[in-house]
């Protein structure tokens, strides 16, 4: 569901009236829900908005798929028209380096959230260097969304131009029903959130079991695999899951082999190098030693590890060392390869 966030109840009035929202018991007043969405009144100012958003998301992030900030804003540019709703592309914060972008990529309007109301033209001119629109809370809301990795978007209706001082607040209050209605209409037109789940195309049977680290690895590999084999049928064919399922392995081992298989598909060059190196440790293994190469294939240093228990091992180790094709290893690491 969407979490709709407004600074003030006036901005939310049309939503509250039309949406049948009911107040929710929470640590502070201002959280509502209906069957589709939740609605939060976060108050005015970056700090308070961020606090209330963080508290709300800490409890309800599992239910919320997107946050939409709605409200009034000021215009620093003559190009932004009064009583018009703009979808915001990037939110900047006054004296804050970080910026946050909407998950909707279709807008060209940016906004800067400020700490205090802007009353002087000189302040407005300075802020206009960064964005044509100005508000008091979007940056705090977006910052909390980033913390919880929840998509953020923002719709703002232009209510005034900074520098206007005479009765601006009163005018905004008087026009609040209109602004709220405009926001309601704009929100209704907004495209629904589309979630691309990179894991959706690879469904593993119960014959596979993935530990948390294997799950993470699979997720990372899978998105690369989708780039390399954009056609799902091709992808599945190259993985040959039925063949893996027939192997006499534990479900965890099977997942491990699947990960290896994806790695080989993505890195055929590295697979080839590893195959060329694979035979070399065998004589050492006979002597009870392990010979390992740098896993990143970055350094040609080898690690020989083992314990000598008898004369036989010494003889085998000497023989293995004598047979070690060092020049071949050097050639591999220097890129003199047949691939």
């Amino acid at each position: 569901m969407d979490l709709l966030v407004f600074a003030h109840a006036n901005e939310a009035q049309h939503f509250l009236k039309e949406g049948g929202y009911k107040s929710m018991p929470f640590h502070f007043a201002g959280l509502y829900r209906n069957e589709q969405n939740m609605l939060l009144l976060c108050g005015e100012g970056i700090g308070v908005a961020r606090e209330k958003m963080a508290a709300t998301l800490a409890v309800h992030s599992g239910e919320i798929s997107r946050v939409v900030n709605l409200g009034v804003c000021g215009s620093l540019s003559s190009q932004a028209e009064l009583e018009t709703v703009y979808s915001i592309r990037t939110v900047y914060g006054q004296d804050c380096f970080k910026s946050f972008s909407s998950h909707l990529g279709d807008s060209r309007w940016d906004l800067i959230s400020v700490r205090e109301r802007v009353l002087k033209d000189s302040q407005a001119s300075e802020l206009e260097n960064f964005a044509p629109l100005i508000d008091r809370e979007a940056w705090g809301i977006a910052a909390a969304c980033e913390l919880f990795k929840i998509p953020f978007s923002c719709l703002k209706v232009v209510s005034d131009r900074p520098g206007e001082t005479d009765g601006v607040c009163q005018k905004v209050i008087e026009k609040a029903p209109l602004y709220s209605k405009l926001l309601f209409e704009a929100y209704a037109e907004q495209a629904p959130l589309v979630i691309n789940d990179p894991q959706s195309s690879l469904t593993l049977s119960a014959l596979f079991y993935a530990t948390t680290s294997q799950k993470n690895r699979l997720k990372a590999l899978q998105s690369s695999l989708e780039l390399k084999f954009p056609i799902e049928a091709e992808r599945l064919e190259s993985l040959d899951l039925p063949q893996l399922e027939q192997l006499e392995l534990t479900p965890k081992q099977r997942t491990s082999l699947l990960i290896e298989r994806i790695g080989d598909l993505l890195n055929p060059f590295q697979k080839d190098i590893r195959q060329q190196l694979a035979e070399l440790p065998k004589p050492f293994e006979k002597a009870g030693f392990s010979l390992k190469f740098d896993g990143q294939l970055e350094s040609k240093k080898m690690h020989l590890n083992g314990t000598i228990c008898d004369q036989r091992q010494v003889v085998q180790l000497i023989a293995a060392l004598k047979e070690l094709p060092y020049q071949k290893i050097e050639n591999i690491f220097n890129g003199k390869l047949d691939v």
Binding site: S223, L225, L227, L266, N267, Q270, Q296, F333, G335, L337
Partner: peptide, 23 residues
């Protein structure tokens, strides 16, 4: 993002040494 880049110990993302040298 689907190429054979790896993260080296020095923090650089690049192809493994044998591959770089081969290229």
């Amino acid at each position: 993002h689907s190429s054979e880049l790896i993260k080296s110990d020095n923090g650089l993302i690049r192809y493994p040494r044998p591959m770089r040298r081969w290229i």
